[in-house]
């Protein structure tokens, strides 16, 4: 299964990944609408890159079975089934299921790799992991 891997020490907080993601999925440059979110933190290495690791913990919390694993292993949300309860947001161990008041449904990284292609420092990259 492919996930977005990260090397936070390389991150320069340029925000390119957030812009790429929100531009593609929400048609606007708005980090709050990005499925990868980067922030400066006090602890080493000074940067936190928050992106879904496809652990799938959220799946069992969905009341309508809108979350599932695609054949590739990526956890995906079926927006047609989703009833906007945000239980998945509350249950995510890494808080990588995001939400925004403009969007009815929560949103997450589906490992499309767009952000990793644009990252200038290889702080994020596609990584193969065992399911």
């Amino acid at each position: 299964m492919k996930i977005v891997g990260k090397n936070e020490e390389e991150c320069i907080l340029c925000g390119t990944c957030e812009a790429v993601c929100s531009e593609y999925y929400f048609k606007e440059d708005n980090r709050e609408k990005s499925a990868i979110q980067v922030s400066e933190i006090d602890e080493d290495p000074g940067v936190d890159i928050n992106v879904c690791n496809q652990c799938g913990e959220c799946i069992r919390f969905c009341p309508v079975l809108a979350l599932s694993r695609a054949k590739s292993g990526t956890v995906i949300l079926n927006k047609k089934k989703c009833i906007a309860c945000f239980n998945c947001v509350g249950a995510c161990p890494t808080e990588s299921m995001f939400y925004h008041e403009d969007a009815v449904n929560p949103f997450k990284c589906i490992a499309c790799a767009r952000c990793t292609k644009e990252c200038p420092t290889e702080a994020i990259f596609m990584e193969e992991v065992e399911l």
């Binding site: 989703c82 945000f86 239980n87 509350g90 008041e101 009815v104």
Partner: peptide, 26 residues
């Protein structure tokens, strides 16, 4: 059912309260 059927005045307010307590419960 969509989650907004009540046609609420301020969806964000409800959403924020909901996420906060979901995380607490978790």
């Amino acid at each position: 059912l969509t989650g907004k059927n009540n046609n609420p005045a301020d969806f964000g307010k409800i959403q924020r309260a909901g996420v906060k307590i979901h995380r607490e419960i978790n």
